[in-house]
Design a protein around this nucleic acid. Sequence first.
RNA 1: CGGGGCGUAGCUCAGCUUGGCUAGAGCGCUUGGUUCGGGACCAAGAGGUCGCAGGUUCAAAUCCUGUCGCCCCGACCA
Length: 707
Amino acid sequence: MAGIESKKSAYRPVTISGPQRRAHRHFRAGHREQGAGSGVCTHCAGTGHSIVFSGRTHRKDFCAALLPLPRFSTRQPATVGSRGCCGPGACVGNRAQADVPSPRALAGSPQNPYKHGHGFNGERMYWSRTLIPTSREVPADADILSHQLMVRAGLVRRLSAGIYDWLPLGWRAMQKICGIMRQEMARVDAEEIQMPAILPAELWKQTGRYFDYGPLLFKLKDRKDTEMILGPTHEEIVTELVKACVSSHKQLPLTLYQIQQKFRDEARPRSGLLRVREFIMKDAYSFHSSVESLGKTYHDIFHAYVRIFKRCGVTAIPVEAESGPIGGDASHEFICPCAAGEDLIARSEDGSYAANLEMADRQIPADAGFPIPGADVSAQLQRVHTPGAATMEQVCTFLHVAPQQMIKTLVFVKSEADGGGFVVACVRGDHEVNEAKLRRLVGPVQLAEDAAARTAGFVIGFVGPHVVNHTGAQLVIDPDALAIVTAVTGANEKDYHVTNFNWITHLEAQHRGKAQVADIRNVVDGDKSPHGSALTLEKGIELGHVFKLGTKYSQALGAVYLDDKQQSQPIIMGCYGIGPGRIMVAALETLSDKDGIVWPIGIAPFEVLITPIRYEGQARTVADELHAQLADRGVEVLLDDRDQRPGVKFKDGDLIGIPLRIVIGDKGLATGQVELKRRTAAAPEMLPLENLAEQLVALIGQMRPRV
RNA sequence: CGGGGCGUAGCUCAGCUUGGCUAGAGCGCUUGGUUCGGGACCAAGAGGUCGCAGGUUCAAAUCCUGUCGCCCCGACCA
């Protein structure tokens, strides 16, 4: 405990003047080296990062790029003051951007140095002195791979349903992800802030979301009985903030973001860390005086997100998602294809089209509609008794027909504001109505309540399209349902269905005339994308979402600016979220192997694991030296100093998935070598002891994705 | 919220049907010893209000009722 205390107290800002002041704002006392000047970062060799330092600053052969936050183990006082500022990866990650990082990229958050960058540079970590509770047993309550691995590797521990402790390894990985997000957000001129997690319910009532969110909101009352909520997202709060601080178009555009805990009282937390009740989210909000400006920022952040996911080593496919009031391509989700995912996306074979299931369009024949060529109008409607068979499956079994021969008829009701009329939607028996598509076609609707529908003459469970003959409801038909020549469908009579249903004969002409024929169903495997290529459905994890909000919140909360003609205008907004925990889950789900985690280098809690076969004698000396050299070069390195048998260390090492493992044993040392085992490689390779640290630094640089 | 399942040691589980002696195993942990390149072995130990409350009974981990918690399927999920 004393160690923790002294660690905390070691954080103290130092005063640095000059242009690099922002970059150095959070340097801790302990950088004792004196002198001012400039030079080239030895760890970005070739990237040309210059370093500038003045007065009391850090060691001069490391560049100041990218959010340094050195930490020193107080257990190793001899090493304090000798650490570099940035890992090689941090610098290399910035390589493509420019020769010299923009001052923005160096910016920091004075309020929260702990959340700034990943901040693990220069630290010598020993396995025996941290907390890595690995386990051989698969936890009983974990049924997806990522969850099992996170618990077995000691990344997290469940405290309550959907609520987790983050242990050192997991938290380090989280901080790495957050560091990448901070760097990329800085590159698109987004500034970090921190809003409260406890919010007054009043603001949420003003936008109506207090009710829209319903039981998903964690609600509480303070001692004065004021209703509060735990924030599930922050549109209201950030809008209120900007409303108070921004009044002129000259202050726009503006992008703010935070990385913060969110709370949602999920009906059913599940899938380990995928759907949880308390989670970290990076949420960004942009503010504009024109739709064009919003479009530019949306584009910039979209591409920042592409870089973030790439640097994190996870696949993320941008897919079209339900767009808001702006319309067009106003919303994209970033989905990692993966069996454990909860979202469904449709992708075309040729890669030209990707959308979530809600949005995925398909090609329909240009001539779909009435009249229907080749329709058999001679067949007689047959009424058949189907007692109790109210579902598609029951009817199919009962009548021995395939669902492809059936018409599924669903009754929707329009919103009160829209007159509250009924809409009858017909799809083929094996298809599902896509409510989002239906809404885009006929306005706001929802599935009718049984009681209301029955009162209006709909025999729920036995409805057929011809119900519109006597109810006069609006009829919408999917082309595939229309294409069935003689169909089986409901008889509009309890416990009866009909066969030989035919759209021409059994639908009165006036209703035929008014019927809309349109794509109103979910796409299925094999459907043609709007570009003509075959679609495939796959599951995926939603990692991020970018969204053009428009003026929904600014209008509700009165956030306006004065334009150049002295006119008051609502601020145009966008919002952009990423779930870092989901990035981690996606990485674990898609990259792990039978032995455990395989971290991508960008988000690995450590880059190098040093495993002396026995931590004594020459192996110990070599291990300690390498440990110090790597740490001095900004490499994140963990030394397995435990008095354990090699097998245990290897198994644990594989399980926690550090990308590079250096094994130091008598075998290699006899020939002046150590063993390098890449986590992704089947076999180890031997490396000479000479310039070992430099070799590893170079290797790590090569392993990082270029963006 | 509907359906199903589970709460016994830090972890994974047995015991419950058919109530009964001091509640068990493996892993992990502690101590000593022997080992030491893929989760060692020997010996001795520590550790459990059997989720909680009430009831039935001479007697409850076991049967009954209630309650809390957790997991899975579904509904739901800016």
